[in-house]
Computed example of a mutant assay.
Amino acid sequence: MKKLIKRANEMYTKRRYKIVDMIAVKGLFLPLMAVFLIGCSQKDTDAGRNTAYEKSTLPTEQKIGFENIKSLNEDAFAWLYIPGTDINYPILQDSEGDDSFYKSHNEYKEPDENGAIHIEAANLNDMCDFNEVIYGSSPKDGTGFAQLNNFLDKEYFDEHKYVHVYMEDNSLIYYIIAAYIRDDTKLLAQYDFTYASGCMEFINEIYRKGDDSKIIRDGCETGLEPEHFLITLTTDSTDEPGKQTVVIGCLMGDVAGKIDRDVDYGDEDDINIQAEW
Rank of each mutant, 00 (worst) to 15 (best):
L4C: 05
L4I: 12
R7W: 04
A8H: 10
N9T: 12
N9R: 10
Y12F: 13
R16P: 05
Y17D: 13
Y17P: 02
V20F: 14
M22V: 15
I23E: 07
A24V: 06
K26A: 12
K26W: 03
L28H: 12
P31H: 14
M33N: 14
A34Q: 08
L37N: 07
G39Y: 03
C40N: 12
C40W: 04
Q42K: 09
Q42H: 10
K43L: 14
D46M: 12
A47Y: 06
S56F: 13
L58K: 14
P59Y: 13
T60V: 13
Q62H: 09
K63D: 08
I64H: 09
G65S: 11
G65K: 09
S71L: 10
N73E: 10
N73D: 09
E74C: 07
D75F: 04
A78Q: 01
G84W: 01
T85S: 05
T85H: 03
T85Y: 00
T85R: 03
D86R: 06
Y89V: 06
Y89W: 04
P90F: 00
I91K: 00
D94I: 00
S95L: 15
S95T: 07
G97C: 08
D99M: 07
S100P: 00
S100Y: 13
F101K: 07
Y108D: 13
E110C: 14
D112L: 10
A116M: 08
I117S: 05
H118N: 13
H118V: 01
E120C: 04
A121C: 08
A121G: 01
A121Q: 11
A121N: 09
N123G: 02
N125C: 11
D126L: 12
D126V: 10
F130H: 02
F130I: 08
E132S: 14
V133R: 01
G136W: 01
A146N: 08
Q147I: 11
N149G: 03
K154S: 15
D158C: 05
D158Q: 09
V165R: 01
Y166L: 10
E168D: 13
N170M: 08
L172H: 02
I173T: 10
I176F: 03
I176H: 01
A178P: 02
I181H: 05
I181Y: 05
R182P: 00
D183M: 12
D184Q: 12
D184K: 13
T185I: 15
L188K: 05
D192V: 03
F193S: 00
Y195V: 08
C199S: 08
F202Y: 15
F202N: 00
I203D: 00
E205D: 15
K209H: 03
D211F: 04
D211V: 09
K214Y: 05
I215V: 12
I215M: 03
I215H: 03
I216Q: 00
C220N: 06
T222G: 02
G223F: 06
G223E: 06
L224E: 06
L224S: 03
H228Y: 09
H228T: 13
F229S: 04
I231D: 02
T234D: 01
T235R: 00
S237D: 04
P241R: 06
P241H: 05
K243L: 11
Q244M: 14
T245G: 02
I248Q: 00
C250A: 09
L251W: 06
G253S: 01
G253P: 05
G257K: 00
I259M: 07
D260F: 11
V263D: 07
D264S: 05
D264C: 04
D267Q: 05
E268T: 11
D269L: 13
D269A: 13
I273N: 10
I273S: 13
Q274V: 14
E276L: 12
